[in-house]
Amino acid sequence: MRAVRFLDGEFTVGEVPELPETGPGQVRIAVAACGICGSDLSVSKDACRFVEVAEAGGYPLAAFDTERPVVLGHEYAGVITELGAGVTDFAVGDRVAGIGLATDAATGIPTIIGYSNTYHGAFGEAIIVDACWVRAVPDDLRLDHATLAEPLHVGEMHVQQSGLTAADSALVIGCGTIGLGAVVAAKARGARMVIASEPSPRRRELATLMGADIVVDPTEQNPIEVWNALVADAGSVVGAAANGILIAYECSGRAGILNELTHQMPFNSRIQVLAAGFTAETITPVVPQFRRIAVNFGHGPYQDAYDITLRRLAAGSIDAEAIITARVDLGGVADAFATLRSPQDHVKIIVRPGLSAD
């Protein structure tokens, strides 16, 4: 099977060991398209640190041997070629996308495809995933567009977890794909005001396209000061604001941002962390306590976030083609990763291993 192997900071295209047998409850998928995720970029920058943090946090889904090659990629879409025992919801030939999880039959431990030396990711010709995480792609939705449901649904999930109501306002910090997903979700759920903060002009344009009411270049304006100016007479620092609160959706992963937010967010506000960094951060805990600021790293209920996002894509309420800024074949993966390390011109680059992505 042809795939892009990653080892010691280098990408090479070639043959890789065959996938395990398709186990009970699993499906094998011929890959049509796969997005390059921010987590994939983190692995490419420092795979050892990525695994170190995963293992220290007791998170087996992203632990692999960094001295052996891996095939990255989990934002997939493709066509089912084989069904494991007990799979009755799908048929060979179905067009599908979904969450890239596979459970090792020998250990019973799930893994994210791509962050495994055994279960290759979708920067290759085929993957095996647990069928319970797979969804049928509507006939009128292109497969490469369907790959966006995975990163965009993170925004929907966190907006639900944050408890946003129609009285609240959303501040989305960082407008990569996950941030754009938060803009879409906050707007769809009736946020009173959606402010997007993003230094890249192209991404600011996309935030406006996705529904943000106000878009700010943080190198020129402090977005929290922009919000404060809009609601200067609407609340008090002592009691809960009468007209809802401000919820910050941190999607940049920038070092130091959490400490800045705890000092600058209004009293009684919330911070929802979507894109957490891999380096140690320092905050002064008493500051958010003084200001009664809640910080949430992903706790709380949510429902059907992926399915909701897939339906939005199929309905055309999300302009998928605008988010996809480039497509590459397997031979273009290394250059795509290099480009995304300075993402002024790109948002989502799609890898196409060869199967038609229409």
Rank of each mutant, 00 (worst) to 15 (best):
D104L: 06
D89R: 03
R270M: 14
T262K: 04
G316F: 04
F123M: 09
Q303G: 10
D217N: 13
A105S: 14
P223D: 04
V71D: 01
I271T: 04
T325E: 07
F337S: 04
R341Q: 12
N268P: 06
H120S: 13
A315P: 05
G239F: 11
L209V: 13
E220Q: 12
A336T: 12
A338E: 12
G108W: 05
E198T: 08
A54L: 09
G86D: 04
V134Y: 00
A170Y: 00
T103N: 08
L148D: 02
D139K: 15
V53N: 12
E21T: 13
V215A: 07
D40S: 07
P301M: 13
V216D: 00
A207R: 01
A242Q: 12
D130P: 00
L171R: 02
D65F: 09
V92N: 10
F11G: 05
S200F: 12
V226K: 03
A212E: 00
D319Q: 10
R95V: 12
T66N: 08
I247H: 02
D319H: 10
G35V: 07
A305E: 05
E198L: 08
S342D: 13
A131W: 00
V96W: 01
R203I: 08
S197Y: 00
E75L: 06
T282Y: 06
A207W: 00
C34L: 10
C251H: 03
D345I: 07
P199C: 08
L274M: 14
E281V: 11
T107W: 03
Q289S: 15
I127H: 02
G316M: 08
P138C: 13
A3F: 04
A77Q: 04
F267H: 10
I99C: 07
V159G: 02
E125A: 14
V184M: 08
L274R: 01
A102N: 05
G354T: 07
V27R: 00
V31D: 00
V43C: 05
V53P: 06
I80V: 15
G25S: 03
A336F: 11
R270V: 11
T88F: 02
G277E: 03
E67T: 14
I127P: 02
G211E: 03
R142L: 14
W227H: 08
A241R: 11
E10N: 14
A32N: 05
D168R: 08
G121F: 02
R28M: 07
G331D: 14
A97Q: 03
I178V: 15
E125W: 06
A196I: 03
T107K: 05
H158M: 15
V231Q: 05
Y115K: 12
R68Q: 15
E52I: 03
I99R: 10
R28P: 02
G114L: 09
E260H: 12
N222H: 14
L83S: 03
L274A: 03
L310V: 10
T66P: 11
A85K: 14
P60G: 09
R202I: 14
T279Q: 15
T111S: 15
R292M: 11
R327I: 08
A234L: 09
V295Y: 01
L274P: 01
S236E: 10
N222A: 13
A326V: 05
G354P: 06
R254H: 10
A85M: 11
E18R: 15
G235P: 07
D94Y: 02
I80P: 00
L19S: 07
R203A: 05
G58E: 10
H74E: 07
A47R: 01
W227F: 14
R203G: 04
L101T: 13
V347A: 13
N117E: 12
E281Q: 15
N296L: 14
V154E: 03
N296F: 11
